[in-house]
């Protein structure tokens, strides 16, 4: 109905102001690229945190020349605990091999003797135990007092750090989203203000011919929304293309280090960014117009 007229008028103005709008859309795209990149980083950090949170393990590093009987007894003790799913002995040689497999290391490192890598007992805990850090610390403390044990790594501090990193990242992304929102308001608002200045006669003519304020306003809202839409959609598409291109290259290394494949923004997240851009874009336009129309 009325909307088609508004879209037609908006399209005509976009053609007339092509250069102005191109500048605006590029600026918007840059802002959304930053936001998108931040959101992708957070998405991957979260994925890593989740993956690590699920597979809680303990590494019990053994002293050099630990008594095999002590180790067997310790494993039996651990296997008997309800929180423990499995235990596995990793000898110095195994550890060295794992290290060499996981890293494309140069000749110098490959020459390292097996003794450099301590042997260990790798304990996998049940998912139920993962929920309860107190039990993990309790087990770790008890094991640490046993003979032949050099050190117990619970990875708790690592998990805590990662979780903090994710939480901090989420907060940062929230702040960034807010900043980007303000940027979009300013960019669209300024573009529409310039456009209004170029279209003073047009607006005056419309009003003299009996156009209501909403008739005058509607094409501008469409233009603001379209700028947001195109800017955000372009940024998301570019990021997706980069992601698909790069993930082929880095996915194996990433997976080896983190245990998860790199992830892109979820579809709802992409939709949220684009819809947000549309809403904020038309809001920027409405703000610019409110000032102008109020003066008539």
């Amino acid at each position: 109905m009325d909307f088609t007229t508004a879209i037609k008028r908006a399209a005509r103005s976009a053609r007339e102001e092509a250069r102005l709008y191109l500048v605006a859309i590029s600026s918007l795209a840059v802002a959304f690229l930053c936001l998108g990149a931040a959101l992708i980083t957070i998405a991957n950090l979260s994925a890593i945190a989740e993956r690590w949170g699920q597979s809680v393990r303990l590494s019990i590093y053994l002293t050099d020349g630990a008594d095999a009987a002590d180790v067997t007894q310790m494993r039996a003790l651990l296997d008997a605990l309800p929180e423990v799913t499995s235990t596995q002995l990793v000898s110095s040689a195994d550890a060295r091999q794992q290290f060499l497999d996981g890293n494309e290391v140069g000749h110098d490192l490959a020459a390292l003797p097996a003794e450099v890598f301590p042997s260990s007992v790798e304990v996998t805990l049940s998912p139920a135990a993962a929920e309860n850090p107190a039990i993990i610390s309790q087990i770790a403390e008890r094991v640490a007092r046993l003979r032949g044990v050099e050190q117990v790594e619970t990875y708790r501090t690592w998990m805590d750090r990662l979780r903090m990193l994710v939480a901090g990242g989420r907060f940062g992304a929230g702040v960034l989203a807010l900043l980007v929102g303000v940027c979009v308001l300013a960019i669209v608002g300024n573009t529409i203000r310039l456009s209004i200045a170029n279209r003073k006669t047009e607006i005056e003519v419309l009003k003299l011919c009996g156009a209501t304020d909403s008739f005058v306003r509607r094409p501008f809202l469409v233009e603001g929304a379209a700028q947001g839409l195109v800017g955000a959609a372009f940024a998301v598409s570019l990021l997706l293309a980069l992601f698909l291109f790069a993930s082929g290259e880095i996915a194996p290394a990433f997976a080896a280090f983190t245990g998860v494949r790199p992830v892109f923004l979820t579809v709802p997240m992409m939709a949220l960014v684009v819809v947000g851009a549309v809403v904020v874009g038309s809001a920027g336009s409405a703000l610019a117009l409110r000032r102008y129309l109020a003066e008539r």
């Binding site: 007229t5 009996g210 156009a211």
Partner: peptide, 8 residues
């Protein structure tokens, strides 16, 4: 055409 467009 402006007045006619305004009058839909």
């Amino acid at each position: 055409a402006v007045p006619l467009e305004i009058m839909k």
